[in-house]
Simulated scan of single mutants.
Amino acid sequence: MATLPRAVRHAHRRVAALGLLALLATACGQGSATGGDAPAAAPVNASDAAATAPLKINTSPEQNRVRADKAEDVAAKVPEAIRARGELIVGITGDGTPPLSFLADDDSTVIGVESDIAQLVADVLGLKLRLDRTSWENLFLAVKSGKDDVGFSNITVTEERKDIYDFATYRVDQLAWEVAKDGKVTKIAQPSDIAGLKVSVGSGTNQEKILLDWDEQNKKAGLAPIEVQYYQRPADYYLALKSGRIDAYFGPNPTSAYHAAVSGDTKIVGTLSGAGESLQGLIAAMTQKGNGLVQPVSEALNTVIKNGKYAEVLKRWGLSNEAIPTSQVNPPGLPRQRK
Rank of each mutant, 00 (worst) to 15 (best):
Q280T: 05
N218H: 08
Q174C: 10
T158Q: 03
R233C: 02
Q190D: 02
D265G: 12
E227Y: 09
R171A: 07
V124R: 02
N307H: 04
P335V: 04
G196L: 15
T266V: 12
D123H: 12
D247Y: 04
S327E: 00
Y230N: 06
P331Q: 07
E87L: 13
C28H: 03
A195V: 10
L131Q: 09
H10K: 09
P225S: 13
S200C: 13
V121T: 08
A46K: 04
T109K: 02
R316W: 01
Q232I: 09
H10R: 11
A38M: 02
N138F: 14
A248N: 11
A235H: 13
A142C: 10
V44N: 02
I268Y: 02
M1F: 09
S145Q: 15
A84M: 12
Q174S: 08
G196M: 15
P332A: 04
T52Y: 10
D105F: 00
D106S: 10
P98M: 12
G270M: 00
R85T: 11
P98T: 11
K147E: 14
Y165C: 02
S108P: 08
L55K: 09
D193Y: 00
E227G: 12
E80C: 07
V78S: 08
P43Y: 03
P332G: 05
G290L: 09
R233L: 13
L100I: 12
L21Y: 04
C28L: 06
L139C: 09
T271P: 06
G151K: 00
S263F: 09
E299Q: 13
I305F: 05
G96A: 09
T3S: 10
G251N: 14
G36I: 08
G151W: 05
V329P: 00
T156W: 04
L334N: 05
D213I: 07
R65W: 12
A75G: 13
D116C: 07
D236H: 13
V90K: 06
Y249M: 08
R6G: 11
I117F: 06
L141F: 14
L120Q: 07
N58V: 09
S101D: 11
R14E: 10
K56N: 10
E160H: 05
A71W: 02
L212C: 08
A176Y: 01
L120K: 07
Q232P: 03
G29H: 02
D148P: 10
N321V: 05
D69N: 14
N45F: 02
A40Q: 01
S200W: 04
Q217N: 08
T303G: 00
A11L: 14
P225A: 12
R336A: 08
K70I: 08
L24S: 05
M286G: 01
S263D: 15
Y238W: 14
D132G: 12
S60Q: 13
A42P: 03
P191I: 03
V228L: 11
E80Q: 15
S47M: 07
D213C: 11
K289N: 03
G196Y: 15
K306Q: 14
